[in-house]
Design a protein around this nucleic acid. Structure first.
Length: 271
DNA sequence: ATGGGCACCTGGCTGC
DNA sequence: TGCAGCCAGGTGCCCA
């Protein structure tokens, strides 16, 4: 479910609730996440004080005085802030109880999400070590993507979803950014012109920034830490709009499958 | 190295 | 009403 804007929205919701708080209890009701939670997981976290809540790609980094909790929301995960007496719901797997009396619950029906508690620099963890630049950073610019596309025969849509090229762009925002850039999702990455690469870099930055501003996109389950949905869905140009008129030229939006994922595009605006 | 396909898992919807 | 089949915001891993 969540791409960079949804994870960043979650980070912003967690930060004021977690910063400076101490973890007084950790309860796990399902250890079988994407990677099984180790036996010592609860004990390692309990008693820690939280210093900050960061983000790298789609990973949340909950920085404590004894290590970092790395959280991924997978396809269907969310973290909600609740009172400690709130009723448990189906698929609540992990609960982190704070000294403020509030609690953070990780709910994830599909269990593609994950948690790791690591000592030392989390950027050196195997999951983070090989990640490409952040899309909203200065490092992700036209020259960078130009170099990263040369000689690549993969479809440009697959390339922008590759976390070794740029992070945080998932299935929704890949289609949306390509629409905004006027580039067909099936084009071989290496065949894009300099101008197209430049437009694509700008489109990725703008669509992600606009989605963060709207609190992310809720298609089905995504909710922020308060349980409220994101409002960017109304601003989507192509995603899940197959057969509907393009909001720019009125041509019907089309859908195809690339790499087992749905792609949406306007055959008139994109070439 | 690169590209493509599968696997992990549950729930919701469609159509017979 | 029941059930099979298909689809869903991700990504690590295996193979050619």
């Amino acid at each position: 479910m969540p791409e960079l804007p949804e994870v960043e929205t979650t980070r912003r919701g967690l930060e004021p609730v977690l910063r400076g708080r101490r973890i007084v209890a950790v309860r796990v009701t399902e250890r079988r996440l994407r990677w099984r939670l180790p036996a010592g997981f609860e004990a390692e976290l309990t008693g820690r004080s939280i210093r900050a809540v960061g983000r790298r790609a789609k990973y949340l980094l909950i920085d404590t005085d004894g290590g970092t909790l790395i959280v991924h929301l997978g396809m269907s995960g969310n973290l909600r802030v609740l009172g400690s007496d709130a009723a448990r719901r189906a698929h609540d797997h992990v609960e982190i109880v704070l000294d403020s009396g509030r609690t953070v619950r990780f709910n994830d029906p599909r269990r593609f999400g994950s948690m790791h508690f690591v000592r030392g620099n989390p950027e050196e963890h195997a999951l983070l070590r090989h990640l490409a630049p952040e899309p909203l950073s200065a490092a992700f610019d036209s020259a960078y993507l130009w170099a990263g596309t040369r000689g690549r025969r993969v479809a440009i849509k697959a390339l922008v979803m590759n976390s070794g090229v740029v992070v945080g762009v998932g299935n929704i925002y890949a289609s949306e950014a390509l629409f905004r850039a006027g580039v067909s999702p099936r084009r071989a990455a290496g065949r894009l012109t300099r101008a197209e690469v430049g437009r694509l870099v700008l489109a990725i930055k703008r669509v992600l920034a606009a989605a963060i501003k709207a609190g992310g996109t809720t298609l089905r389950d995504y909710v922020d830490t308060d349980g409220s949905p994101g409002y960017f869905r109304q601003k989507l140009f192509v995603y899940e709009r197959v057969g509907l008129a393009c909001r720019v030229c009125r041509t019907p939006i089309r859908q195809m499958v690339q790499g087992q994922r749905s792609t949406y595009w306007c055959p008139s605006c994109q070439s």
